[in-house]
Design a protein around this nucleic acid. Structure first.
Lengths: 152, 152
DNA sequence: GCAATAATTAGAATAATTCTAATTATTGCT
DNA sequence: AGCAATAATTAGAATTATTCTAATTATTGC
């Protein structure tokens, strides 16, 4: 597996600072949790995992931490239909594949040109800050439900 | 503007029938509302518009009708981040552009090849039933807030 | 025309997220 | 170091979109 960009405690603190945010134990642990297991957990799932290390954390704080990390571009939000928001620490340009049967989400790496090609379809005067590409479907090969990993 | 595929009352009834669903006045009106103004309304907005014509309709029925129409592929659902689901009667392959300032959503037509090109990025054994592409950003030219239309 | 099935309705229930107000922690200044 | 200002955390209440429930109404096939 390609080692994905991740960030030391110091760097995290710096990135937060650049956005006018503070580094806190809660934010570091939440970030760690996302890096450790890249299975696109929901806020609730993050909450459960963080509680194992820091039992006093509250759900509101988890939401706050996730928002902070999104704000300074250390993680991305992923939304499938009506489901709860999921969080993704993969910052490479990539799409998401959502398995309708298992509910799992996989990262799909994209070749460099294709996002630009998509943006080129926009009429004059449309300034894009973000593109999201999501596939919905089934995967033939069944994977272990608990250990999801980056496809490709 | 390109005349988008739409369907007569009879055809609607047939399409519903093919999916084991019945045509009802409520479903026809809901479909009409979506065709009349293609601004990607939420279920609540559809509810408000339909009530003008059929004041006794309930919100649960609106949800039911929208679900029925989605099921027989007469309309598509569109989701932006945490916002409520929006509904779209444009069945051409297209992307969506969500204006972060105005909250408006525009259709972006896509050239035929590009969706296939994206699907080609998937590893073996990934069967796609649907691809969604969404842009987030701002539009330079301000449009009248109440009359959205298909871009391009 | 009647039984079976499906759709509608109003309102209750649920799930995810956001808000609120009080408390705690951190930072920058002197 | 001490203190005011600012930011983050917490628990729980509130909100929002959606789904569910149970009763009623409409439609279809025989």
């Amino acid at each position: 597996m390609i080692p994905l960009a991740q960030v030391t405690s110091d760097a995290l603190s710096q990135r937060l600072g650049e956005s006018g945010l503070r580094s806190t134990p809660q934010r570091e642990i939440v970030y760690d949790i996302l890096i450790k297991r890249r299975d696109h957990p929901t806020a609730d799932e993050v909450f459960a995992r963080v509680k194992a290390e820091l039992p006093t954390i509250s759900l509101a704080t988890v939401y706050n931490c996730l928002e902070a990390l999104v704000q300074c571009n250390l993680i991305r939000q992923v939304n499938f239909d009506r489901g709860p928001t999921r969080y993704c620490p993969n910052l490479h340009p990539h799409a998401h594949f959502h398995d309708e049967v298992t509910g799992s989400t996989y990262d799909i790496d994209l070749p460099p040109g294709i996002v630009e090609q998509l943006k080129a379809q926009l009429p004059e005067g449309y300034a894009v800050s973000d593109v999201e590409i999501m596939f919905r479907g089934k995967t033939r090969e069944r994977r272990p439900a608990t250990v999801e990993h980056t496809a490709r």
